[in-house]
């Protein structure tokens, strides 16, 4: 434990505020929400597709 023996106690409001920000980590403002993905191309193909063939009249 040689590394910290030379560190003297300090009162550093900026450092304590920094630590407070790290501890009180907020949730991300914008997460990664799933977005709606309507299958527009599929609906278009359905609308433009030819009607069901009918039996020819005799």
């Amino acid at each position: 434990m040689a590394a910290h023996t030379g560190i003297r106690p300090v009162v550093a409001p900026a450092d304590i505020a920094q630590l407070g920000r790290l501890v009180a980590e907020p949730e991300p403002a914008l997460a990664d929400p799933p977005l709606p993905e309507p299958n527009a191309a599929g609906i278009l193909l359905l609308l433009l597709s030819p009607p069901t063939p009918k039996e020819p009249r005799k």
């Binding site: 991300p28 990664d32 929400p33």
Partner: peptide
């Protein structure tokens, strides 16, 4: 949080 996909929170 799960719906937001914020898995850290």
């Amino acid at each position: 949080t799960v719906l937001r996909r914020d898995f850290a929170t």
